[in-house]
Design a protein around this nucleic acid. Sequence first.
DNA 1: GTTAGTATTCCCCGAAAGGGGTATTGTTTG
DNA 2: CAAACAATACCCCTTTCGGGGAATACTAAC
Lengths: 207, 207
Amino acid sequence: MISIAIVEDNDQFRLGLESIILGQKDLLLLASFEDAEKAITALPKMNVDIVISDISLPGMRGTELILRLNQKMPHTQFMVCSIHDDDDTIFETLKCGASGYILKDPITADEIIRSIHDLYNGGAPMSPYIAKKVISTFQKPTSKSPQSVLSVRENEVLELLSKGLLYKEIANKMGVSHETVKKHLKNIYQKLHVNNKIEALNKFKLL
Amino acid sequence: MISIAIVEDNDQFRLGLESIILGQKDLLLLASFEDAEKAITALPKMNVDIVISDISLPGMRGTELILRLNQKMPHTQFMVCSIHDDDDTIFETLKCGASGYILKDPITADEIIRSIHDLYNGGAPMSPYIAKKVISTFQKPTSKSPQSVLSVRENEVLELLSKGLLYKEIANKMGVSHETVKKHLKNIYQKLHVNNKIEALNKFKLL
DNA sequence: GTTAGTATTCCCCGAAAGGGGTATTGTTTG
DNA sequence: CAAACAATACCCCTTTCGGGGAATACTAAC
C-alpha cells in the first residue's frame, strides 16, 4: 500500500488526482492540500510515501516547498505535476529534491498511476519532453569548445584524472608509461595556464 | 514508419530484438550488425531513424560508436540497451550523445516498443533505475548527503580546495597553520572513505 | 564529570605531483 | 622537404600530499 499526499491549488485538477488515487486498491490518499502553508506544517507529522505537488502555488513556490519538506522527510519521495516546461523551473525543481516531473498538459490517469508506482519502486518518472531535456544537459558540446586546444590524448588524461585516479593508474588504463601521463599533464597545464590538477579540471569543465 | 538499425553482438538478444521489431507494423528493421566496425561503415550511408546499440561490443565500445556515428548522422537518435548500470558507463554514454538508455535485465518486448516510439517522438526513454541516477545528479547536496558528516571547518577547507588552492594557501585564507589544514583533510578523507583531493571533491559534488 | 567530538599544532616519512630538461617516432601541413 | 605538433619515454630535482602518530584546548552531551 502506497500512501500519498497531494498539494495542488487548482480545484479541478486536485479533485481529478484524488479520484484517480481513490480508484486504485494499492494507493492510499492520506492528505490533500490546497496551499503550501498547510502542507508544510501538516506533512512532516505524517508518514507519507509520496507527495505529488504543483509548482505554482499561492504563497510559496513548489520548489521551495519540496526543498523544505525534503529535509524533514528523508524517506518521502516528491513528484511534481506541472504545466511549466521551461529549463529554469525543471532544473530548479530537481535541485530541490524532486525525483519525478510530469507535465499536466498531455497526461492520462494511467500515466499518473504508472508514475506513482515507478517512483515508489525507486525510479524517476518523467514526461518524455522532460526526460529529453534532462538527458540533453549531459551531451558534450562537441567540436569547438575549449577542449579543442587539448589533444585527444590530453582529453583522455583529464577524463581519467577527474575520477581521482593517480598518474600510475591513468598510465595503466591508457597503456602508456607513468612518465607520459606526467608529460601530458605538463602540456595541459601550459595550455590551460594552470598549475595543478584541480585548477585544470575546473577550467576543463567550464569550457 | 520508423526505420531502425541494431548493433548487438549477442546473437540471442539481437535475434530477439529483430523479431520484436519485425512484429510491429510501424517499425522497419533496416539493418542489424554484430560488431561496431561494420556498423560504422555501413550506417552513415543509410537513412535510419533510430539505432539501438549494445555497450560491450567486440573491438569498440558502444559509447565510441555512438560518438562517431552521432557526428555523421545528426538526424538519427541513439538508444543503448545494456546490462551495465554503473555510473561511469551511463554518463559516458549520455555524453556521447545517446538519447535513451534501457537496461537489458528487466526488459519486456512491450517496453522496447514503447521506448522506440518514445524516442522517435522526441523523448528520452530510460529504465527507472537509470532515470533515478540521472535525476540524482541534479540533487543539491542537502541534509543527509556527504556534507552532513563534515564539520563547518572541514566544509570550509573543501570549499577552498575546490578552487585549486594549495594547503598553505588555504591555511593563509583560514588563518591557521598548514598542518591544521592537513589534519582537516585527513579527517575528511576518513569520513568520506577516499584517499585524495579529487575523490573527496567528487563525493562532495564540488567538481 | 567523564566522554565524545572538534579545532588546533606539531613530528616523521614515503609517495605523488609538478617543473625543468632531452630525445625519438610518427603525422600533418604548408 | 622542413616545420610543427602529437605521443611516447626518460632524466633530475623540489614541492606537495597522504598516512601514521601525539598533544592541547574547548565545547557539548550524557
